[in-house]
Design a protein around this nucleic acid. Structure first.
Length: 193
DNA sequence: TACGTGATCACG
DNA sequence: GTGATCACGTAA
């Protein structure tokens, strides 16, 4: 079952970030289905310095300000496409970065895209999972109940299975870099780093 | 630990 | 226009 768009609206971004753990991200690119269980997320809001939206709307981040339930995809370090889930209502720029997946369907396709013979850690990192699932900036702004990219129900996750920690790679955000807004599934071997 | 990589953004 | 900067990944 695809998650309804309502799932992404009018709720706290850290709550949704935790609830995304155990859900399944699916893409259909060139007719190929690839999917993975979400095992690591990070929450961002326009109220804190870690977010692209902290200094207001720009051409790059404008989809963060739209109604929730769409993708925000941008290029990082000139090399990596990063996939985010936009949440909350129009004007409130909350987003959730998906940082790692446990591969499910289409593993051969993912290995081919990653140019590797091993299925080990092919989706363990925000830049890697987008490449493995065929996500690039052309997905920016797409609704997450489309037939090309969506998120569906996966496994049940209990509060005790969730670990909170500080977010990765945002030291520039000062004290906001310390917010415990990174969420991982406990003891899951597919989380990044 | 170091650095490639290129879009983006805040300057002028 | 220009230059600093960056929500990473890999090699060493």
């Amino acid at each position: 079952m695809k998650l309804p768009i309502d799932f992404y609206l009018r709720r706290n971004v850290t709550v949704i970030a935790k609830q995304l753990l155990g859900k399944i991200l699916v893409t259909k690119v060139n007719g190929m289905i690839t999917s993975g269980l979400i095992v690591e997320t990070e929450a961002y809001s326009d109220k804190e310095k870690g977010s692209h939206a902290f200094r207001g709307m720009t051409k790059r981040n404008e989809v963060m300000f739209s109604d929730g339930g769409v993708a925000y995809v941008y290029l990082c370090y000139g090399v990596h496409e990063m996939f985010n889930v936009v949440t909350n209502e129009k004007g409130k720029a909350d987003a959730i970065l998906v940082r790692a997946l446990e591969p499910q369907k289409g593993i051969d396709t993912m290995m081919e895209r990653m140019k590797t013979d091993s299925q080990k850690r092919i989706t363990s990192g925000p830049g890697k999972l987008t490449k493995a699932l065929g996500i690039d900036r052309s997905f920016n702004g797409w609704e997450l109940d489309s037939n090309e990219i969506w998120i569906e129900d996966g496994i049940e996750v209990k509060p005790k299975d969730i670990v909170s920690s500080k977010r990765i790679g945002i030291d520039y955000a000062g004290e906001d870099a310390l917010l415990p807004w990174r969420f991982t599934l406990k003891n899951n071997p597919w989380v990044s780093r």
